[in-house]
Design a protein around this nucleic acid. Structure first.
Lengths: 206, 206, 206, 206
DNA sequence: CATGAATGAGTGTTCATTCAT
DNA sequence: TATGAATGAACACTCATTCAT
């Protein structure tokens, strides 16, 4: 649908437009809390203090806003994950880095993470959102490569399937965006340490 | 039970109506795959081979269907969890039982689990759905009680906060409904064992 | 756009629905007088005494209405033209029949003719309306075949290019829908005779 | 002329502004091909390489552009028609001149002719466009006067109603703007001759 | 039990136009 | 002269729901 449109460039399309960034921030917040489909363009416009039609001066569609929010989030995440793995001396160090940074992302980009976490089902059905699955696959292979190498080196246990560990870990980590409170007493780094503690040696006392 | 109730219900609303059950099954499936808000009553009616208006002969609203699906799921879950804990000799046995049954539920009631997992955010804003939060709280206290007792008995580590362990574990377990394939080669009980392995002694080789 | 939709069959889609026919009649009238793009679905609904959304119980889109109106008109026209040519003994008889019937169509189906006359430019750009061009081409070849045969038999002049004669004649005839008044004193058959007089032997006195 | 006028016009509205003429040219082209209503001011602005709001520096409204285009076309046409009739020795010469010049106008001012041909229905409903009907009426009386005089002098046949001949002829001639290709092999003067041939002595071989 | 016609509020989007800079 | 942000009214279309038959 949107891919066949003429895509007449919007005036404010320059990446540097401050108003655009503001509007995206508002949209991200609303998409995250109410859900993308449940957020109307009028909601966004109201929050921004303009009329809904005026949004279309900046963005060509509601979908475009979602796309832009997600793309910049996923691009940044992927880049950071690659740096972390590249800079790690051993699998365990790499894995810990990935987990710690994930909690940082949850802390700093709660809206985008929520969005990704909650709308991924919807997203897979939309064209123009192939990049999300693509990014997800790349993230997955980064984590799994770390897990597999750790198993090879003997750092990680042999009887645990890397792809399953990845899924359990990923869901445990990223789901915390639903209950994590950035202003609460439990800070994101403390959260990361508890998570790593559990991950490393498990729940049972020895 | 149904005929002696107060507010005269719709004709087919006797708990024993087979048509009702069929329709609920269809609705649950659609709600789970497309999301509640993204599923129209026409979608449900189409699938059932009737017109959308005719659904209102069986249910008073779309929300009612959701409520009914979730209530019966959560009631059953709560009951089962209580039995498991009551029948367990030790905290660890209780916890393992809870985890194992969770995977069984994911296997047997995938639609309802998905629904609960995906729509909980929406649900908290709806009146008439207080029972969901209520059930969630009761489930949470069951799990946390087990975790706390295990810490007291020395079975579980002291440096792990029960409420955090609960959240990590809950999310890891229940999120698997999103990727678990009931017809795949990885069976739900094998999944449970991998999960428990990781939970018990962690990822690191000793 | 519309061709990729699911095309869930509308309840009233049965060709026999009287309400549908009424609505199409209203739409045709409005499309013809105001133009397709300038006619809103609210205009149609207002005229029908219902709300605009209710139209979608009968038709899946505004475009669908246009399509249905035009398709039935063009199908009938084509069929009639074929009968006329098939039943004619000579090119001149065929041509006269075609012209006479055209004026009858203008009289009896003024809305559809206007629509075709005025919206053909728009139509050529819409997908799903290929059938209009297809029908137009078939009509054109019927008329041109008659003109060419007349030239071959010596009934029609040799120095007139059939394809040009066709265009001049077609436009002279069909454009009259714009000024012809079905309730006026000049009847459609008288109009046809004047047109044929001019066509046959021209304006100049001998 | 422009500086002494009453209502202070927009800056660039001096009749001599080159930018204005360019913009009108662009607008005429777009109005002709897409239709007036289907052409947005953004379309025009895009083509001109400016923003849509900037058009309002030159013209007070979209309608104004249409008006200006049509007015200059119709004024010129009327003037030319008057000259032709005034300079003709006989009705037939006058008529031939009118037809020939019409094809020239189609060739040289295709956009304006298309516009007039296609939007006349819309135009009659707009206030501020009375001048179009007024001009049309004056053109009509010129042509009909010629036809009537020809009938009086015995040059044209008696059994053909001038007002009908006018309409048939007008539509045949002007409609050709829809299919005439200025760059094609069939030149506009050849077209005029074929048209006159048919008009003069008709289609039938003698 | 189901149909078919309708409601009414809402949804994303378009577009001519305005105006401070 | 032009920009860029915004307006405000309108538009095609959706959807949960109602109800007479």
């Amino acid at each position: 649908m949107s891919s066949t449109k003429k895509a007449r460039k919007r005036p404010g399309s320059g990446a540097g437009s401050a108003r655009r960034a503001e509007l995206l921030e508002i949209a991200a917040q609303l998409f995250a809390t109410r859900g993308y489909a449940q957020t109307t363009v009028r909601d966004i416009a109201d929050e921004a203090g303009i009329l809904s039609g005026s949004l279309y001066h900046h963005f060509s569609s509601k979908e475009t806003m979602l796309e832009e929010i997600l793309r910049s989030f996923m691009d940044g995440l992927l880049e950071r994950f690659q740096e972390i793995v590249a800079g790690a001396a051993a699998p365990r160090e790499a894995l810990d880095g990935l987990v710690r940074y994930s909690f940082t992302a949850i802390h700093e980009q709660q809206a985008a993470v929520s969005l990704y976490q909650n709308e991924i089902a919807l997203l897979s059905r939309l064209p123009d959102f192939g990049f999300v699955e693509e990014s997800s696959r790349r993230v997955e292979s980064i984590w799994i490569a770390v897990l597999e190498e750790g198993r090879r080196t003997g750092d990680f246990r042999e009887d645990l399937e890397p792809s399953l560990v990845y899924r359990f870990l990923r869901d445990a980590v990223w789901s915390s965006v639903r209950w994590y409170n950035p202003e609460g007493t439990m800070r994101h780094d403390a959260l990361a340490e508890q998570c790593l503690l559990l991950l490393h040696t498990g729940l049972l006392a020895d």
